[in-house]
Design a protein around this nucleic acid. Structure first.
Lengths: 350, 350
DNA sequence: CTGAAAGCGCTTACAG
DNA sequence: CTGAAAGCGCTTACAG
């Protein structure tokens, strides 16, 4: 092992104190009125020997790690991986690294992760929280550790939050179905009482009830595998023959649904219309292409970093200054939910 | 801020030395012949006050961080995000956390990241290396720091590597085209001299030349955006009218290619056959579904962790014990490359 | 069986 | 303008 040189090795070699080197390295040379020549000499030497300060030692001393803890549901989910990438990039520019992990939406794993992150003294948390971890997050904010929640949040907790207008997005999607003459619009969602899922459901219900129609809802347990979901959705459609449109509350639910519809040999958008909440890079390439409610990924990442940056830089940040940002969604109109019994259908039948 | 209690606070409170507590906490009670009663008393108290050892201090002292540094090209790429998730999970069971980052296949960013990881004293590296970082990786292994490369590697470097049989995968895919009577098979690949790309190209060339045909190759600069790639591929197809099949060397190249083919109004698989190297969860849902050469994600993750675990546990690992694991690929036969002028075509025209 | 003390590599209050 | 020294919270060689 090449011997690592410490700040003291350099001090010895240059015949000055470690203090001076530390000041120079931390850009406090001017403030401490260190001689320009000395500063230059130190900088040159440090560069020459390729000295890298030991961040672990620095962390121990300062109590700051310059590491952010990020927890998402599944890093392999395209929504979360895109967000993570953007946040990583932005955090990097602020001088922070990301320690990240997938929670699998599991309460125990999440608690465990927060514990591990605390042990590591991460400076801030970016969390798409699993259910049941209110207390752990409360403990964090009680200790004045910056936390930004995204995708979902706990209304009773005074955290900074970045979410999207789930309710409005689903309301708009349902209205779009109605405009296109779909009559029996169902919603397939997750059997979870997370706020974002509730809001999505409520947006759908509002639009349907405005038309004096009855909501038709399937709640799929979120523990199921893709195959099991396909079966559930298939059974739901079979049990509700009249359904001619389905709003799926997540990306992967829509993908499972597509499979179920294929198995039932129903045609999209004629026999049944489809809209997916949360867009997917590939939906435009599906056949037919899938209409979706897109989340503003870039904006979410920007807001998360902006809010966290605020807490981080304020030192002792104000608890009463936490904000909740609600970002609008965008309906990506493609071909899985177009007007039935009109131009399109005619074309298909011709 | 709730005052954190240190091992000394506990020592004071229990009227014993920090040493004893440290031994107990590190499971060395038996070895150090600490009294059973004392041990129990310590464990109970530690649990009661919820004491968490400060890992930063431990790292500084032991020189071990229990953190692994992982570098992939883009975390938002489905191949890399799937691998990352699996590795994260497995590393977790070994007691390691992941510090991860996207390199964007950029030499400078990669060098910078390795520097940052070193500052943090990460215990091991898992890297899908960008070009031009041989020296930095060599510096790592010269310092006896465990490194496992995956997806690609530097043949001249004595690292542990996990790769797939790129050559064989492309050879098989090309043969499959030939079996299905495609005549003018082209390959669209990246303009990069990374080994995995070379191997893929070579597999294709071998299969084509075995049939005494001329390779038809397009090399797309890897800096292009999706739109620019579409244009390049479109121009390539136009310039090579006779081409009736294309093997794409990556997932996203295939997706760009699909768009180009759509713009040219060519029909798949009749006018042109398509195979993508690297599968994608959604290829089965495209229309037509896309035949691909799938990488064994789970196996790759397993091997990476196995090799790294070996180095990590051996303490001073043997440089001459590094292995390179080559995993087989699997041809996922779907509908984008089926026999032309036969049953299928007839069905379509009927 | 248990503890006092050194030391990992930094930063910073204090002194001059 | 510059430096000696304490201390962040652990672990471990050494002593008893």
């Amino acid at each position: 092992m090449k011997k690592k040189n410490s700040i003291h090795d350099i001090a010895r070699h240059l015949n000055i104190s470690a203090t001076t080197i530390s000041f120079v390295l931390n850009g406090r040379a001017a403030e401490k009125r260190i001689g320009k020549d000395l500063e230059k000499k130190i900088l040159q030497y440090v560069k020459k020997v390729g000295y890298q300060p030991n961040m672990v030692a620095r962390s121990l001393r300062t109590g700051k790690s310059k590491i952010l803890g990020m927890m998402v549901e599944y890093i392999s989910d395209p929504f979360f991986s895109s967000i993570t990438r953007l946040i990583e990039e932005k955090a990097y520019h602020l001088g922070y690294k990301l320690l990240y992990s997938s929670t699998e939406n599991d309460t125990q794993k999440s608690k465990e992760l927060i514990r591990v992150y605390r042990e590591r003294q991460v400076d801030g948390y970016i969390i798409a929280p699993a259910p049941g971890i209110e207390k752990d997050i409360k403990a964090l904010i009680d200790d004045n550790i910056p936390v930004v929640l995204f995708d979902r949040f706990f209304p009773k907790l005074l955290t900074s939050n970045v979410v999207i207008d789930n309710r409005g997005g689903c309301y708009d999607a349902t209205k779009y179905f109605i405009q296109n003459d779909y009559r029996n619009i169902a919603m397939v969602t997750l059997d979870a009482d997370q706020i974002q899922m509730k809001d999505r459901l409520n947006g759908y219900i509002k639009a349907v009830e405005e038309k004096n129609r009855k909501p038709i809802i399937a709640k799929i347990p979120f523990t199921l595998s893709n195959e099991e979901r396909v079966v559930k959705i298939l059974e739901f459609i079979k049990a509700n023959r009249a359904v001619d449109a389905i709003l799926f509350s997540t990306n992967y639910l829509a993908i499972s649904g597509l499979k179920a519809i294929e198995l039932l040999q129903l045609r999209i958008p004629d026999d049944i219309g489809i809209i997916s909440f949360d867009d997917n890079t590939h939906f435009a390439l599906f056949s037919p292409s899938v209409t979706s409610v897109a989340q503003p990924i870039e904006d979410i990442a920007n807001e998360v970093i902006r809010l966290l940056g605020k807490c981080l830089s304020e030192g002792n940040y104000k608890k009463d200054q936490q904000e909740t940002v609600v970002l609008p969604t965008k309906l990506m109109i493609r071909n899985s939910a177009v007007a039935v019994n009109n131009e399109h259908t005619v074309k298909v039948l011709a």
